[in-house]
Simulated assay, not measured.
Amino acid sequence: MKVLIADDEDLARKRVFSILNKLDGLDQIIESSSGKETIDLIREQTPEIVFLDIQMTDMTGFDVIKKLKNDLFTIPLIIFVTAFDNFAVKAFEIQAVDFLLKPYKKERLIDSFNRAKLKLKSEELNGYRNKINHLLNFLDNNQVDQGRSNRYLDKIVIKIGKKYIFINVNDIKYITSSAYYAEIFTRNKEKYIYRISMSELIGRLNPDNFTRINRSTIICLKEIKAVFSEGLGDYSITINSGESFVLTKNYKSDFLRKMNIK
């Protein structure tokens, strides 16, 4: 069996690879880092199962399956992976298509993989293809809601147990990182753990509302109470709830420009 991991985040691909590589029955694991490369590899390498990230740099995972629409009856089993796309979650749940919501546990990934293997060996494959066809039709009828039309997030979807939590981005005070996890702090003093890189997350937040001030901190601009010059070009930032943060060199110019500090 051949599996393709399609994700533009190198760390995300490595995590899936490390989990799958320990399982039996896999002849080859291949990787792609863009939508175009994913389409080419599906057509050339014909993997049986694909872990497909929804948000890639050149196109969405939805765009990928649309490009493969004419090859519907040779399309592999796809397990969609999404970090925070509430439209994607809605689409998958309506069409009963399997997906992984980041951050997912190792056991959840293995369970999805095992279910996909069972479908390959049963008559469920035709049913799966019908679901993909229905998903494509659903996407065609909901063009306004999906893709790049809403580049920045309004909500972040986090799965806790069997429950999905929708965090309003406008409620976020600041975000800090711990290894590959983001810790999201809200105005009502709630904290959520989210498996995502800071560079990926800041790319989906509106730059008019959020800014990165150091390698491990993103803050909401409206939450800033004061900016202190510490001398020698160093600055610190205090937000309304009292927390203080350091503004580091790599992010200083952009931050000072946004705050109109000269």
Rank of each mutant, 00 (worst) to 15 (best):
Met1Cys: 05
Lys2Gln: 14
Ile5Pro: 04
Asp8Val: 10
Asp10Arg: 08
Arg13Asn: 14
Lys14Cys: 02
Arg15Asp: 04
Leu20Ser: 08
Lys22His: 12
Asp24Arg: 06
Ile29Ala: 05
Thr38Ile: 05
Glu44Trp: 01
Phe51Thr: 04
Asp63Asn: 13
Leu68Gly: 14
Asp71Ala: 07
Pro76His: 11
Leu77Pro: 00
Thr82His: 08
Asp85Pro: 13
Asp85Ile: 12
Phe87Val: 09
Phe87Ser: 06
Val89Tyr: 02
Ile94Lys: 12
Gln95Lys: 12
Gln95Leu: 12
Asp98Trp: 02
Lys102Asp: 04
Lys102Phe: 03
Tyr104Thr: 11
Lys106Asp: 06
Leu109Glu: 02
Leu109Gly: 02
Ser112Asp: 03
Asn114Cys: 04
Arg115Ser: 12
Ala116Phe: 03
Lys119Met: 12
Glu124Asp: 12
Asn126Ile: 14
Phe138Asn: 12
Phe138Trp: 15
Asp145Leu: 14
Arg148Ala: 10
Arg148Phe: 14
Tyr152Glu: 03
Val157Gly: 02
Ile165Ser: 04
Phe166Met: 07
Asn168Pro: 00
Ile175Thr: 00
Glu183Gly: 02
Glu183Trp: 03
Phe185Asn: 04
Arg187Asn: 10
Lys191Asp: 00
Arg195Gln: 07
Glu200Asn: 13
Ile202His: 01
Leu205Tyr: 04
Pro207Phe: 06
Asp208Gly: 07
Phe210Gly: 02
Asn214Thr: 10
Leu221Lys: 13
Lys222Gly: 14
Ile224Met: 13
Val227Tyr: 03
Gly233Ile: 15
Ile237Ser: 11
Glu243Gln: 15
Leu247Tyr: 07
Thr248Ala: 05
Ser253Met: 09
Leu256Glu: 14
Lys262Leu: 07
